[in-house]
Write a protein that binds this DNA or RNA. Structure first.
Lengths: 218, 218
DNA sequence: CGACGGGTTGATCCAATTCAATAATCGTGG
DNA sequence: CCACGATTATTGAATTGGATCAACCCGTCG
């Protein structure tokens, strides 16, 4: 999606302010009034939904360049929590202003719609993962997804730091933390990865891909 | 996903054509070029994604009044299949025209954004269900969700027909069809529902709600 | 230092799957 | 219209993947 210089100038007007979110604190919480989207400048966030009876589910991890807060548009209230996994900085994009400018700059409108649609597609992928994959398949898919996103941002696709705990990975993948830990150990044993606490190196991404597609005789 | 009657009237102006989809046939398939959204006039659809290795996951069931096809916006290709579970009729909404009109009619633009956001929120709910609920909790939540949607359309919230098979329910809920069948039988035994093949009557919706929130000593 | 959060690993358990048999229902063509 | 093969659904028995319970390690921070 290309923006012309003049379009870019318009877009600049969107960003009102920046905001820092220290590790462990929330950018917003479920129930908060919605009035802005947030573009992640740097850092790492998780989104979580919590059911009435207190079960928490991580619905996504977000890194620099991604847009969060889309859940708030539907009812003008946020439906999930967005919590910083490390010190994080976001651009605040007032939503009313975005809608207004989008209606005048077609390319921006189109782009915005694509971003929302992409989020829907991403979630379909997560549903596929949660609904039909085994523990190790889920974890392998997760690692490959992280890898690909780091690469897209210019970082190493083979070596990176897991900003989230095993419990948070487990919540996202519908697994218990022990299962995540065991699967990581098994991958390491099989020479697919090297893990050292939060530091991770992918040694054999094809091997991980084979696991994702269930080509593993266990 | 819900359009009010007056919204529908506005949307009518957008509609180029109608299209009938016989039971079992696809409105679109993954990989098809995207150029339109579809408002369901009558009938019932399922959306499914299929992984490279052939696993299929039902990502949603759609009924009259709902909008489908949003997944196609991101890349201009559909990435899931939409298949009719019964003879179905849709309004075809050419997407370019929608974008154009939306930029001129703020209320429509806002509404469209809310519809997309609601889909994201809905999917968060499904992730919570898939990631952290047990079989019977999932099924109870599913039945209550259907019930509520039928009610919103003026049908009975206690008595309706399941248009999908047990296998399709299972796929959506991340369960096997036998598990779905067993859970239904158990609910029936416990006096929560009456089932007769595809016909279903909810006898105790509070009981189902209690199950959803895990207040069941099994 | 001691406590505490995060991680690993082992032993056991159980919910859901798998395998299997049977029944009910549907739809299609003679 | 009815018969018959093909789906779809139910139910039982055996199996198993991941959860649970528990012990222990490591690093960090007050």
């Amino acid at each position: 999606m290309q923006l012309s210089p003049s379009d870019l100038a318009t877009v600049e007007k969107l960003v009102a302010t920046r905001r820092k979110v220290p590790r462990g604190e929330a950018l917003y919480r479920a129930g908060d009034d919605f009035d802005s989207l947030y573009a992640l400048r740097l850092g790492f966030l998780k989104s979580t939904v919590t059911s009435t009876d207190g079960r928490e589910q991580v619905t996504g991890f977000h890194m620099a360049g991604e847009l969060v807060g889309l859940d708030g548009i539907s009812t003008q209230k946020h439906h999930c929590d967005a919590v910083a996994l490390e010190n994080t900085e976001v651009c605040v994009i007032p939503y009313e202003r975005l809608e207004h400018i989008a209606s005048e700059v077609p390319v921006l409108q189109t782009h915005f719609h694509k971003v929302m649609s992409r989020e829907i597609v991403r979630e379909h992928g997560v549903m596929l993962l949660l609904g039909s994959m085994h523990a190790e398949e889920r974890l392998a898919a997760f690692l490959l997804n992280l890898s690909q996103r780091f690469e897209a941002r210019g970082y190493s696709r083979t070596e990176f730091v897991l900003r989230m705990t095993r419990a948070e990975i487990g919540s996202f993948l519908g697994l218990k933390l022990e299962t995540v830990s065991r699967a990581l150990s098994r991958f390491a044993n099989d020479g697919l990865i090297e893990v050292n606490q939060k530091h991770l190196r992918i040694a054999d991404s094809d091997g991980l891909r084979a696991i994702v597609s269930g080509q593993t005789l266990r």
